[in-house]
Design a protein around this nucleic acid. Structure first.
Lengths: 347, 347
DNA sequence: ATGAAAGCGCTAACAT
DNA sequence: ATGTTAGCGCTTTCAT
């Protein structure tokens, strides 16, 4: 591999000059630049980023930590992050925890050792001690938290208003005439889980419908299987609910699959609503109504925050909220779409 | 940030000794080790990987290049790669092309500049000039190609036998009594696309069914929408096919969605079969029969190849084939499953 | 078994 | 405008 020194020799100039040309330093003459460019081309020289990083203490890498990559949700996440990072000449280092609880704290240290410039992280499922570690690290490099904010700390965030989002979802059902609405809750130990439940509750109360404990069941997980199992409790209530809302799409889909197995028609006998609008919501039958979260835009903004922080343009933690949108499909409104809607899968 | 020099000073030893302790060098006395360990703990020292990389010329990073991350297929891919790389103390640098054709060649150079130790790549959709670049780079570091092999080059590969896989899929349909079987082809400019078509053809011929050009339509893309549109041509054939096979799941699902819109019952009036067994195949109604590809195992093997190559244990390119498995579900066999099958989504 | 010292490839003062 | 030089933090001969 050719080095900068080789280039300098071939061009008959000093290494410092080559470096200046490489970095577009203002005071380089045209003639010097052309000599160096020529030598670079002839030698097919490429700078060694590791050596540069050692000097400049910046690596042009950003660590991206997710609890798992086995979630369709992160498909969009990776796409946005990859693209946005490329625009600022950075590359993502992927740290996928796969719910392996001993990993995060090691990773946090590794991130420091590797000298990444920033960190974008989804702390879903993290324990407090790891969060504390995150606060510590955020003093040393920009950290953006995804879908969870830590007010009063130096951790930035891109977030959505889950309570408002779920409120809108339930409003939609109420507008369609439902008054007995079951709720498949999850993540109640988390703000996001609580917010969704609160959104459900406030929507009911705003319409003068009394909140009924019996219509809420804690699924304890966000997985399809939990929705499938727990919806069975809701069906035993009397009068039976005419609509079911899931704290996320997977729970709603699990519920749908159970209703289907019982030959209950959706939405005629019972309507189902999801939350998050994952791509697969258009692929189940009937297509699932849901609440869309602008994941792609959020990732781009997260990268932008890192970039600004690195440029010293951020003097305090910023927490940005993104809007949600209710997407009405067949599972709550039989006449919603006559035509097949192509999902957001690329293939 | 503390450095190795700080540790040496505090422990009252030389930097070389600290380095030896850090790297588990054989000739270190117990007393030296304990002195150094103590200093490390007291200073909360962490080695600087960048500096180490500059010296050792190894970065403990592996570049992972995919054509797009917006594909449910890569969910499993990332999971396997992440986990396996972690086992060998490496971290993936994610290069997601997002079908941006000018990116790959730049990325190939960047990979070199960043000094990554290896490269795992899905060359789906790549032009020959970029492939050539890949061959060149494979002389300098281990490269493993995913689902595409390059015999006679130094590029390793993990691959599946698409022809055999598709052959088995069509055999399954024939065994169920089908003789007029439509094929939604795609990627015919690629070996993988050709192989799948050939598998279809050879299965027919082995059962004495004449291959009929009219029952094959080139979808020109692997996307749901193409399946939805192109299946319409197959339905116009006379006699109408009693089964449809997609070159991948998305095409099959697109076809299903069209059949559904025409109120054709699956599988009674027409059976549908996919290929790749993506997670969503269990979530559509009816559940889609498909051919499973061991993506997870393949990624782990890919990482293992990188590891072995790095250790100098691979003296020539290895190309490993993985087996496929026909997964029978409702879309080809009404009695396949009574119970709901939980998919492979984590939530 | 431990230490001294060179150097990986680059950048950034500082000097000219 | 260009060259000289020190040094980023670490590993690795080579001495001792």
């Amino acid at each position: 591999m050719k080095t900068l020194k080789d280039v300098a020799q071939r061009a008959g100039v000093s290494t410092g000059s080559v470096s200046k040309v490489l970095n577009g330093h203002p005071s380089v003459s045209e003639v010097l630049k052309s000599k160096v460019d020529k030598a670079i081309a002839e030698l097919n020289y490429r700078p060694n980023m590791v050596a540069r990083s050692l000097r400049t203490k910046t690596t042009n890498t950003v660590a991206v930590m997710v609890p798992t990559s086995n979630d369709p949700y992160f498909v969009e996440f990776f796409r946005g992050v990859s693209l946005a990072l490329r625009d600022i000449q950075c590359v993502p280092m992927l740290y996928s925890m796969e719910f392996n609880t001993d990993i995060p704290v090691n990773v946090i240290h590794e991130v420091l050792m590797r000298g990444v410039d920033g960190l974008i992280v989804s702390t879903y499922g993290w324990e407090q001690d790891i969060i504390d570690e995150l606060f510590r690290i955020s003093e040393r490099l920009p950290v953006v938290s995804f879908k969870r904010s830590f007010p009063g700390t130096s951790v930035h965030s891109v977030n959505i208003d889950d309570q408002a989002g779920m409120n809108k979802a339930v409003q939609h059902l109420i507008k369609n005439g439902h008054r007995r609405i079951g709720f498949l809750a999850a993540g109640l130990d988390l703000k996001t889980g609580q917010d969704r439940l609160n959104g459900y509750r406030t929507a009911l109360e705003a319409s003068g419908i009394e909140f009924d404990d019996n219509l809420v069941v804690d699924c304890e997980s966000f997985q399809i299987e939990a929705g499938y199992n727990k919806v069975q409790q809701l069906l035993k209530r009397y009068p039976r609910p005419t609509a079911i809302v899931g704290a996320n799409d997977a729970l709603a889909i699990g519920a749908m699959k159970y209703l289907e197995s019982r030959n209950l028609r959706i939405p005629e006998e019972i309507a189902v609503m999801g939350y998050d609008d994952e791509p697969l919501s258009t692929l189940v039958t009937p297509k699932l109504s849901s609440v869309a979260v602008p994941v792609y835009e959020m990732t781009r903004r997260a990268v932008q925050m890192i970039d600004k922080a690195l440029k010293g343009e951020l003097h305090q933690a910023v927490n940005e909220m993104f809007p949600t949108e209710v997407i009405v499909r067949d599972s709550t409104d039989f006449s919603a779409h006559a035509e097949f809607e192509f999902g957001r899968f690329s293939r």
